[in-house]
Design a binder for these strands. Structure first.
Lengths: 261, 261
DNA sequence: GAGTGGTCTAGACCACCGA
DNA sequence: CGGTGGTCTAGACCACTCC
């Protein structure tokens, strides 16, 4: 069971393979054809595709079949949709290293794109917040700040973020500008320090409220990042939940000496 | 713009919110109803749901509408499908920390599940492999080993993995057992050492070949992890591409001193 | 107000799984 | 070989966007 002779390694390495195109379903072939046109640059980044009925006619199929093809491309991250506005070609993914200090505003700009942050809500809450409890804040009664922000890349809302911070840790937080870099406010202006972070990443989908805020539709796949931040005393001081449009992001992590115990 | 008074924080923190259930589309309401039954334990982990036609009749809708509801649940990671075999309730996600030394076999077992690894292919290749070139192996002519493996959790194939290793780095690789932990062979038996890793994670979808190997359907969303491993001299010695069923995995990362420059 | 995407119906045929 | 999921058709209505 060790065929150690040269052979064609099945032409694929866990990546999208060259698609034969034949033998596949109609929806699949239409999806391939559209993908090719996108690669060829027929529709540039963030540019709108023709209306569904026209594409369906062009490919000689039903709208349902055409939409199946588009949903296929959506899953691949090649196109995205805006609710009732149409389908658009996806721009390149933003690379994001959660272990680095750089915040959203900075790394988006560094990759030649235009970031924007919108503060949706900033409140102080002292009641036994269901949120904090569910997110494992140890003492459910502690006062917290809750920030909700929507972040944009170029013309498109790509990210919803909720921060929950222990109020006693950053008492003057709400007096500062929260539409920019939160980490700059915390570590810069307020001189605070985080000792440790625990990050969790998993695919999920947008609920109705999120979909509305991202101009998207319910059930659109997304990537969910959850972070728990600890201070030097090992106490939880911040929780962070991010929901990204799934085609907008590639998480990268640098690991040094991964085999060192 | 700083409403610093107690208020209800919109009842959601970037997580799935309590779903109102009213006002939503039929497919959405059916999806919610099914989700509730799954939570209630009507169908346990890896257990098959009733056939589509029966569910459609039970909910008084078309099969198309029912399938839309199921695809919604699939995107959320609550159910998965096996090609032409039906829909199944998803078991809990496996938590996986790519920065740790533990390999697949170990962390799956540690979480009370049953791991299995299947070697699909193990070849030595010396030609300017398109793969290696596309994956940025610096000297395209270098001899490499290509491993392709399929990995299971309990009764279900969840992961396709391709490893490309510089042959000169681990010359005797193919003589060892490759159906278990690769890292154990490399760092244990062969005494090799990795200095640095660069990991990239992004949502994607399964191509036809992958779908077939995972008993899945083309276009099923997946999570793609790509890793480039360097030795002490800073040379690329291994490439790793993993395609996970997207409901099977939650990537976790421990970061120490995230704000240290 | 025209036209778009979102949703839904009522069928149908086929490929494949499993008995 | 029966039943399943996968695929596709030919419509229809509605809510919403955009002009």
């Amino acid at each position: 069971m060790n065929p150690a002779h040269p052979a064609t390694p099945a032409a694929q390495a866990g990546e999208a393979a060259a698609r034969p195109g034949a033998g596949a379903s109609l929806g699949q072939r239409i999806s391939d054809a559209l993908a090719q046109r996108i690669v060829d640059g027929e529709w540039g980044p963030d540019q709108r595709l023709p209306v569904e009925r026209e594409l369906a006619e062009r490919f000689g199929c039903t709208r349902i079949t055409l939409r199946e093809a588009l949903q296929q491309l959506e899953a691949e991250g090649r196109v995205y949709r805006e609710n009732r506005r149409g389908w658009f070609a996806s721009p390149p993914r933003i690379r994001y290293d959660p272990t680095s200090i750089a915040g959203f505003m900075r790394y988006v700009a560094e990759q030649g794109r235009t970031p924007r942050t919108e503060l949706l809500e900033a409140v102080r809450s002292g009641d036994g917040l269901a949120l904090a409890r569910r997110l494992q804040l140890p003492d459910a009664g502690a006062e917290v700040f809750v920030l909700r922000r929507r972040r944009w890349i170029d013309r498109r809302a790509v990210l919803l973020e909720t921060n929950i911070l222990r109020a006693s840790w950053a008492p003057t937080l709400l007096e500062h500008d929260l539409a920019g870099s939160l980490s700059r406010v915390l570590t810069g202006t307020l001189g605070l320090h985080l000792a440790r972070s625990r990050l969790s990443i998993h695919p999920a989908s947008l609920d109705p409220a999120q979909a509305a805020l991202l101009q998207s539709t319910v059930g659109t796949p997304c990537l969910r990042l959850r972070r728990v931040n600890y201070d030097d005393a090992g106490q939880v001081v911040e929780l962070d939940v991010e929901s990204w449009r799934h085609d907008a992001l590639a998480v990268t992590v640098e690991v040094t000496a991964p085999s060192a115990a």
